[in-house]
Amino acid sequence: MASSPSKTVRPRSALQPPVSRKPRLFRGQCVCVRGSAFVAIMAASRVKYSVLLPTYNERQNLPLIVWLLVRSFEQSGYEFEIIIIDDGSPDGTQEIAEQLIKIYGSDKILLRPRAKKLGLGTAYIHGMKHATGNFIIIMDADLSHHPKFIPEFIRIQKEGNFDIVSGTRYKGNGGVHGWDLKRKLISRGANFLTQVLLQPGASDLTGSFRLYRKEVLQKLMEKCVSKGYVFQMEMIVRARQLGYSIGEVPISFVDRVYGESKLGGNEIVSFLKGLLTLFATT
């Protein structure tokens, strides 16, 4: 898919356009592209990355993740915005977010809260409505996902002209920190089962550190109905069905230092249910 001729029309990067070869494309024309349908390329338009940060009781983590994000983007030089979607956290996460807006500016940090805890899937949809970037980066706010990998996501995206770049704990230098043997065994077993049943062509289906083209994410959000980990799996499976290309970046996942995980309940049972549902319906 990545090599389909229609896609090669797209510029690798609006930052460094191959001016000599196809200058026509940079005068505000529209190019139709299979898969993502329609891409408008404006003269002098800069690529912008919108980071969606869903938070629920992340008072301690939020300033740290934002600090790391800002520093990473300032070093790499890419244009960015950080959209915080807080679901009325009782611990005062929003008050911290307000302070961060004062420090870094309301063009860089956007707080788009919701009244009560409505779940992760809809938090992404809510955040995406307010995103002005051409690419959306989804990550957890609990410091498990390190912003230092974002420049690598961007590099891989450009290199393969991918629609999605997914972080992976299961490949190359990827890995996890702070998991005991039991949790690692469950994770590896679940991953193997997923690979056998769904053959998704991506090595980490339950991770949630990913970069999407905005229009691709919009399309996928319309299609995906699952909750929790299954939602992340469904995104990749549907992406494959729709013919989107997926690149991967090995990431180190460091278990949260502050606060506690919200994905509780019986994770294994709901994971298996979701996996079998995807197996039977896709």
Partner: peptide, 20 residues
């Protein structure tokens, strides 16, 4: 496969230290 991958699961000590 699962056993091998379990045994070779990266621990990312350096990443955790760097984060601290």
């Amino acid at each position: 496969v699962v056993g091998f991958r379990l045994g070779t699961f990266n621990d990312c000590e350096a990443a955790a230290q760097e984060l601290q």
